[in-house]
């Protein structure tokens, strides 16, 4: 009995240690970047590991005074919001239509959309098509191509099919059309799955940068992600890091009196924070995917 308990104890101890270490591995980097981004440039050079040293928000203040950072923030945030609203509504409505068995050519329409999961034309054909559609240097490039996603359709359709038919039938008797049924009956009860899809897509949108990189050169349409990448590339090319002098960033932010390291840290934080803020919702909705007695309620 005693040996058994020792075994139990060590099993749990090892488990706690291993998981805690991995948690630290996942969280500490972000904490490290946060405390460094609000420390003074001199302290950063010495090393800031646990708490901010020489607290200052100068970098953030300067960044938010520069037009291109604010502009990029607006571009990234707006594509996340607009893109998500459009995609969720479109995918939800399409899924709703697909669940209607009486639809003409239903199977064909469904397969036509789902098969795109396995079709990948490749970079160059995609690039030429987008250019041909006039989406080069066009804000709509961030919104239109991802309106319909096969993966989201599958998620939403599966959820809708689990709903009791009774829900709709009573409304149908009242002579409501499909649009009304969708917006008044189906949409409200699908909120758990739509929230999941929305958070997924918002994160995807916020994280996107390849479309920007390949097709948008207009500085007014740059995303935060690409600006961050450019800063990192710049830092990398000055890889003779030994001379850590204060530099004036060449990327268009003039009159900067903070070190390039601080700028990188602060931008990284600006790009990370929104993810961290929507993140708790993601967890909640991911687990809560199951319909809860909508008929009763």
């Amino acid at each position: 009995m005693k040996r058994f308990q020792i075994g139990e104890f060590s099993f749990h101890s090892i488990n706690y240690i291993v998981y805690t270490l991995f948690m630290l591995l996942c969280i500490y980097p972000f904490y490290y970047i946060l405390i460094n981004s609000i420390s003074s440039p001199d302290a950063i050079i010495d090393g800031v590991y646990f708490f901010p040293k020489g607290f200052t928000l100068d970098t953030y203040i300067q960044l938010f005074q520069s037009d291109n950072i604010i502009n990029a923030f607006i571009v990234s945030a707006s594509r996340a919001v607009i893109g998500t609203v459009v995609t969720v509504i479109a995918c939800a409505f399409f899924s709703y239509l697909i669940t209607k068995r009486e639809m003409f050519a239903r199977k064909f329409v469904y397969r036509f959309v789902i098969i795109t999961m396995y079709l990948n034309a490749g970079l160059i054909p995609w690039y030429i098509t987008m250019r041909g559609l006039g989406l080069k240097d066009n804000y709509l490039l961030y919104i239109l191509p991802t309106i319909i996603s096969a993966y989201f359709i599958i998620l939403i359709k599966t959820y809708m099919e689990s709903l009791p038919i009774v829900l709709e039938e009573s409304a149908m008797m009242d002579g409501a059309g499909y649009l009304r049924l969708f917006s008044h009956i189906i949409l409200p009860v699908c909120m758990p799955i739509l929230a999941t899809v929305a958070v997924f897509h918002a994160v995807n949108q916020w994280n996107s940068w390849t479309d920007n990189y390949f097709l948008v050169s207009n500085p007014k349409l740059q995303t935060l992600q690409l600006i961050l990448l450019n800063y990192l590339r710049q830092a990398e090319s000055m890889a003779s890091d030994a001379n850590r002098q204060l530099i004036t960033s060449a990327a268009g932010i003039t009159g900067f009196r903070v070190s390039s390291a601080s700028v990188r840290l602060a931008i990284t934080m600006i790009v990370t924070l929104p993810i961290m803020m929507v993140y708790p919702f993601m967890q909640r909705y991911f687990v809560k995917g199951i319909m809860m007695g909508a008929v009763k309620g």
Binding site: C26, I27, P29, F30, Y32, I33, N36, V203, W206, N207, S208, W209, Q225, L226, L228, L229, L232, A235, E236, R264, L265, T268, V271, T272, I275, M276, Y279, M282
Partner: peptide, 16 residues
Amino acid sequence: LPNFISWVLVYAVFFM
């Protein structure tokens, strides 16, 4: 959490 950050951010983290 790391799954939901972009590769640019992953690179930023590893770079730093």
